[in-house]
Design a binder for these strands. Structure first.
Lengths: 127, 127
DNA sequence: TTAGCAGTTTATAATGATTCTAAAAAAGTG
DNA sequence: CACTTTTTTAGAATCATTATAAACTGCTAA
């Protein structure tokens, strides 16, 4: 399995559950967005063995901490994650109620005209 | 009271509770951000009579629906609202864990370089 | 002014995503 | 294999928010 090394290098033990979740999350062409419950469904469809909900939460947070997933700062009852961890923007389609990725190259530069120190800017997250 | 008319015009009955909440929210120089619990505290400090938590929720949602408040799309355990309903941006200060307003005039134009139809663009919310 | 209806408030229960807990299982190490 | 550490797990706990249903209030028409 190609994920065993990746996990070990990150200091995460390559358990059966983590490897299965890796398959579901990363073994595909395109990146995608998901909630924990959507991920649980995908896991169910993908494997016969059941993974506890707590484990799904644990794993997603572990992967996020290691930088393999990114949390999307959308205001929703459920938290969204993104397997695209490159620096990019999101748009939320109000009608279809789903997220759209826009790469940085799809969006022109955003210029902050107000005077803010460099240090200050680095600790700010654009919403 | 100056808020009676405003409420009536919106189709909201000017109840004692709503007027008190109006005082707390709108009778000030600057706009501000708040969570429901922060608002509840402010109400407690402002008046002697108690307003039920359910009423605070109801009122905030009613005001939001009428356009007097704006929900801020930040991912947090609590929902943030803004009394500044003008079209503007938010930055989230990761270190101080608080929101900062940036007026549109403080931020240069954001150019979407990807081809999206006009109609599509209107139903998108920038995150 | 008052009767009655619609809108509002309220305490409390319900909901639902997420986190906590503590015990069992699995992985790594010598 | 023995032993330590990490991980998994089911279920309980948490906490913001919403639903409920009864009491109350504001409004309006007679």
């Amino acid at each position: 399995m190609k994920y065993i090394e990746k996990l070990r290098k990150s200091g995460l033990r390559p358990t059966k559950q983590r490897l299965q979740i890796c398959e579901v999350l990363f073994n595909r062409e395109k990146t995608f967005h998901f909630t924990i419950n959507e991920l649980e469904q995908k896991i169910k469809n993908h494997t016969s063995s059941k993974i506890s909900l707590a484990t799904v939460y644990n794993t997603v947070h572990a992967f996020e901490k290691k930088g393999y997933l990114k949390q999307i700062p959308i205001n929703s009852s459920e938290t969204y994650f993104d397997t695209n961890v490159t620096d990019h923007h999101h748009f939320y389609d109000l009608k279809e109620e789903k997220l759209i990725d826009l790469e940085n190259s799809d969006v022109g530069p955003i210029n902050i005209l107000k005077k803010l120190t460099e240090k200050r800017l680095n600790q700010l997250k654009f919403l």
